[in-house]
Amino acid sequence: MITLNVNGQRHNVDADPNMPLLWAIRDILGLTGTKYGCGAAQCGACTVHLNGEAVRSCVTKVSRAAGQQIVTIEGLSVANDHPLQLAWNELNVPQCGYCQSGQLMSAAVLLRENPNPTDQDIDDAMSGNICRCGTYQRVRAAIHKAAAMQREGAKI
């Protein structure tokens, strides 16, 4: 049994310690917001927070995550009201939406560490997340928007 702390809840899962965290989250815990895109840490669709870092869960074994704090898109906010989620809605960022969980999880780390990111910072933080629909321009605008909202006191 491996203990996974996901979104503040403890789960004891019976999984191969080598199973990537992605599949444990999706197939065992049933949290399907975290996506499979490439299985090779290339696309970022599977990004979750492991002790606050935006790890690619498709190459992170459950053994690494055991006992650590994991946050998935379902745990980014209680009411879909993280400044990024609000900004994503306001600017109609998603198209198909499949990569957006990963985009948001990456952006959340950026905003936490840099409340006022420049375009260059966004390039540096967000280039690990592929969007085949090509929503990059809107992701960029929405990060700026969320940063402004955060500065104006929206809760995180």
């Binding site: 090779a40 935006a54 190459v59 950026l110 933080a125």
Partner: peptide, 19 residues
């Protein structure tokens, strides 16, 4: 930020070509 080495690079090689 969200592109830290250890976000993809594990404590050991991930098996397979291009991994």
């Amino acid at each position: 930020y969200s592109v830290r080495c250890s976000n993809c690079h594990q404590a050991e090689n991930t098996r397979g070509l291009h991994m």
